[in-house]
Simulated scan of single mutants.
Amino acid sequence: MNFFKLVKFDFMNILRNPFLVISNTLLPLILIGIMGFVTKSSFGTELTTSYDYYGVKMVIFSVAVIAMTASNAFMEEKVIKGNLRIVYVPVSKTEIYLSKVVSSYILATFSYGLLLPIGQFLLQINYGGKNIFYVMLVLNFFSLFGCCLGTMFCCIFKNEERANAIMQIPLALFIFFGGLFFQIHRFGKVINDISIFSPIKWVVDCTFRIIYDNDFQLFLPVLLFLLLASVVCIVICQIIFRPEEYV
């Protein structure tokens, strides 16, 4: 079984799971609609509407939880039998875990590559106008990091439920300190200082600067950081993953 067949196998397993498909397609739009409607009165007559504001933040939130998709693609109960067969075919251990990263990444790239243009051109959500490509690129690198992170947790804990349960802790911290649902500066200087360690905080600041200020100062540093973090996750997978522990 070559690597491309392995990726196809994993990708089809993801598509057979309605929850994973919906969470990466319809769920972001639902979250944008709910948060935009609930907070509409807080934005008054400003040029930035609640739908613009949460249109960015809820997409970032959805990309953040792509780590759960990667985890499900790796060790979800319904695909364990198929995964067991992979262990006994002549394929390297790198291809086994890397196919989970790639298949999840393909889903994220396709989903959010369509979602942002639909949001901007059909729903009139501001994703940067002519700079939408740069916003998409930041989210693309962020989704790669999420896929690598989810796969790494599966390699470490060797069980989907355990991996997801523990992974929710850093994800929740990243989301909180990233200010996706609350303005983090309201919690004081200490919390605001801690927030710089959240990759989501960097992604949020970078995308908003691109969209509203045409400011690309954080663009390359954020991309490089996310790429480096992804590489670190892959290196950890390579070191600790053992095919015999796959199921």
Rank of each mutant, 00 (worst) to 15 (best):
N2T: 04
F3P: 00
F4C: 02
F4H: 03
K5I: 04
K5L: 10
D10E: 07
F11L: 14
M12Q: 14
M12K: 12
I14V: 10
L15W: 03
L15K: 07
L15R: 06
N17C: 01
N17H: 02
P18T: 04
L20C: 11
L20T: 06
L20E: 13
L20S: 12
V21A: 02
I22K: 01
I22F: 14
L29M: 10
L29T: 07
L31V: 09
L31Y: 15
L31G: 07
I32Q: 04
G33L: 14
M35E: 03
M35K: 00
V38K: 05
T39L: 15
F43H: 06
F43Q: 03
T45C: 10
T45S: 15
L47N: 15
T48W: 02
Y51H: 02
Y53S: 08
G55E: 01
K57P: 04
K57Q: 06
I60L: 04
I60N: 04
S62V: 08
S62E: 06
S62Q: 07
S62G: 11
V63P: 08
V63H: 07
A67I: 00
M68L: 14
A73P: 00
M75P: 01
E77T: 14
K78Q: 07
K81W: 01
G82F: 01
N83H: 05
R85T: 11
R85Q: 13
Y88A: 15
K93L: 09
E95K: 12
Y97T: 08
K100C: 03
K100G: 10
Y105M: 08
I106A: 00
L115C: 06
L116S: 01
L116W: 00
I118P: 08
G119T: 11
Q120T: 08
Y127R: 11
Y127F: 15
G129A: 10
N131D: 12
N131W: 03
S143L: 04
L144C: 05
F145D: 03
G146V: 03
M152I: 03
F153N: 00
C154E: 09
C155A: 11
N159Q: 04
E160C: 14
M167W: 03
Q168C: 09
L171M: 13
L171E: 10
A172M: 14
A172S: 15
L173D: 05
F174Y: 11
I175N: 04
F176W: 05
L180N: 12
F182C: 01
H185E: 15
G188K: 13
G188Y: 13
V190R: 09
I191S: 01
I191E: 00
N192S: 13
N192E: 10
N192F: 10
S195C: 04
I196S: 06
W202Q: 14
W202R: 15
V203K: 10
V204T: 13
V204D: 10
I210Q: 09
Y212L: 08
D213C: 11
N214D: 12
N214K: 07
Q217P: 01
F219A: 12
F219Q: 11
L220Q: 02
A229R: 06
C233E: 00
C233M: 04
I234P: 02
I240Q: 06
I240N: 09
F241P: 13
F241A: 09
R242V: 05
R242N: 13
E245R: 14
Y246N: 11
Y246W: 15
V247C: 13
